[in-house]
Amino acid sequence: MVSKAASPVVKKIVTLLERFPKDRIKHHATFRSSQIERFCSIGGVATPKDIIEERKQQDEAKKSTLKINTETIKQALFPEEQKSVNYQKDMFTDDILTQQYRSLKNIYESKWEKYYKIDKKLLVPKGNPNYYVRLLNDLEKGGQEKEGLFPAFKTILTGKY
């Protein structure tokens, strides 16, 4: 079980996770919110409201895409089984939580991206210099916008983006 002294570490983890960038497009699961939920549960901290909202929305969206919802079947078969996720709280000691925090911080600060710096050769590839710019522009718009007729023709004919 997490000792009372560990709770500051958990709080640090949660504040750090809240600073993580939000997904550009919606996915079935989000690293940021799922981990905030998890560490809040481990440290006994109340989960922020917006995270609970997001979770609800994700579950709703998932329902509409699933042909067969195994969750409802499971619930009908084994009603007594607990529904919440088992976060294995007993495993977390102060040391482990500090270690998790360190790694999370390294990820947040892009430690390895800076350590293994790559140059323009890969980021602006000479075979397709516009590739990443166009990808990011499309994602900023939510990935929903369609291409116009003439640019689409150009893409098909040249194969470049």
Partner: peptide, 25 residues
Amino acid sequence: EALASESDSILAATLWRNVFNGDRN
């Protein structure tokens, strides 16, 4: 997307979703 954003947090989120199968633990 992760490569173009030059950020480890986005790369980590992508790897978590795909390679780690969105494992909550």
